[in-house]
Design a protein around this nucleic acid. Structure first.
Lengths: 228, 228
DNA sequence: GGCCACGTTAACAAATCATTAATTATGATC
DNA sequence: GATCATAATTAATGATTTGTTAACGTGGCC
């Protein structure tokens, strides 16, 4: 993601600090919004949906903690990142205890290179896009190899190892029929010998857990994963 | 850290003050460098990487604020401490100074014992203060790499070394399944050989101490740290 | 109906992990 | 450098999960 696509909302009651932080972030190409208290921050957040909000803890009208709690209650702003600005010395562990809603803490005084690094790290971590090569997107669902799960309708489905490997194998031959022999060779390995019903049982469990009929049986031949 | 390992860069346009401050710091065993303006300070800072820079605010050629701002822009000097020397009364500049990235203010006139104490306190802070980049904030808790502790609900949880390293490793692959082999390679090192149950035991302790179920077991595959 | 191929279920065995305690390293302190 | 406390690992046992099988059910087809 380009920095220019990232919007950051800065919230502080001191114009100087807004200016200072804004300058450093804009220099990196981020799109920066500014608000001078928690209330304004919330309305701006609703309107512009920033990726990250940097909130000063100490503010008049509505302080950072309050604002954070409010923002966390708003469903449309779910997934937004919030970082607190705190004065050095206020033990962040105490703050962490008050409010688990924050994603990060940045202490004043602010040192620009570190500040920018921190923001970058935050954005990177939360975008945390899994490696594309580990993800297979099908019509109705997504297979994430790195997390060993299948996601269907936003719900995580956990398959156990053999089930997962079998599914992967079928999907790797999308729309093609694979024989039982090929399945054995691909999932179990050439030399392993297991009974004939073993595949059936695994297929069944996959169909059950995933609630799909994408795995078609071709009688006398084998199985096929159909992408409708 | 021995004082003799600590380098302090003094920056002032008045040789008398340089002399005076330098004498007092050297008496304590610190290694002292001197510069007579901001420009020279920056080049010396790059060359010698002092732990602390004491900058007079008022200087010809390049004043303290400017110099500070410049230094803060240099990535290799990130983490360096900067203290300003200001005349008593001009504390309006403190705000501007903190924004520029200062860590402390020392007001003139200077009284040697107080000055030295102040420097010591600063350096102590420098040594103890966790580097921002050493803190990882997750959903429910905070990991402080520099202190080897985890903070959850405001309570410090102490993990011993291997536990901590293992946790860090899992967190570094957030949401991804890591195999036992990968864990061994990442935490123990390729060549070290330990039994299979060792990981289990450490995982158990982490789960126990932290009271979490974020560490999921994927049987036959490995472990996964799930955020949420 | 009888045969065949696959589906289904539950029960079993095997693999894998969890737990606990005991043992061995490690490192700090005097 | 001996001693002690702590940490890391192993060993032994128990619990769970997973993979497989067996036994039976179903439906199509000659």
């Amino acid at each position: 993601m380009e920095n220019s696509e990232v919007t950051i909302l800065l919230v502080d009651d001191e114009p100087d600090i807004l200016e200072f932080l804004g300058y450093n972030l804009e220099k990196e190409g981020y799109h920066v919004l500014k608000a001078k208290n928690g209330q304004r921050a919330i309305s701006m957040a609703k309107q512009y949906k920033p990726q990250l909000i940097i909130l000063d803890v100490m503010m008049p009208v509505m302080d950072g903690m309050e604002a954070c709690a409010e923002i966390r209650k708003i469903p449309e702003l779910a997934g937004i990142m919030i970082a607190f600005l705190t004065a050095r010395g206020e033990d962040y562990s105490q703050i962490a205890g008050f409010e688990a809603g924050a994603d990060d803490y940045i202490t004043k005084p602010i040192k620009p290179p570190l500040f920018v690094k921190r923001v970058q790290a935050l954005l990177r971590r939360f975008q945390n896009e899994p490696d594309q090569s580990d993800i297979i997107v099908l019509k109705g669902f997504t297979i994430d190899k790195s997390r060993y799960i299948v996601i269907k309708d936003g719900v995580d489905i956990t398959l156990v190892r053999k089930e997962f490997e079998l599914l992967l194998f079928l999907v790797s031959c999308l729309n093609k029929v694979v024989t039982r022999e090929e399945i054995f060779a691909g999932v179990w390995g050439e030399d392993v010998v297991v009974g004939d019903r073993t595949i059936d049982v695994h297929i069944r469990r996959i169909r059950e857990k995933m609630g799909i009929d994408s795995i078609k049986t071709i009688k006398g031949v084998g199985y096929k994963f159909d992408e409708d």
